[in-house]
């Protein structure tokens, strides 16, 4: 019913919520000994999502490991938290626009 763009947006929103889940886990485990930062390769996973594959969680690289074996960087997670929120915001606005356009078509152009 909604065209391909809406489908892509749905996958994008899904992937953003998967990433937000990982960011929330990382923040919750910021003081857990031995915990390693989890992430997804967004570009690759977005292409995989088009092929219907489930996202693959990886350990983030290039982070400093502290004495207790934990490598969560709160700065990095805060940035991702904000970035995910903004991306979600943009994508959901686009999605809303798609739905509104469809509504206009249903109503025969007489308002939304």
């Amino acid at each position: 019913m909604l065209d391909g763009l809406a489908g892509k947006l749905e996958q994008y929103l899904d992937l953003l919520s998967v990433r937000q889940r990982l960011v929330a886990s990382n923040i919750a485990n910021a003081d857990t000994p031995g915990y390693k930062t989890q992430d997804i390769d967004f570009q690759t996973e977005f292409q995989n999502a088009a092929a219907g594959l489930a996202p693959h969680v990886i350990e983030a690289s290039g982070l400093t490991v502290r004495n207790d074996g934990n490598n969560v960087s709160i700065d990095r997670e805060s940035r991702l938290l904000a970035e995910n929120g903004l991306r979600f915001n943009i994508a959901s606005n686009l999605m809303r626009d798609q739905i509104r356009t469809l509504k206009v078509a249903i109503n025969g152009g007489s308002g939304s």
């Binding site: 937000q20 929330a24 923040i27 904000a82 995910n84």
Partner: peptide, 10 residues
């Protein structure tokens, strides 16, 4: 708390 408010926003 910041994570909760961000998710709540989503």
């Amino acid at each position: 708390v910041a994570a909760i408010s961000s998710v709540k926003d989503m």
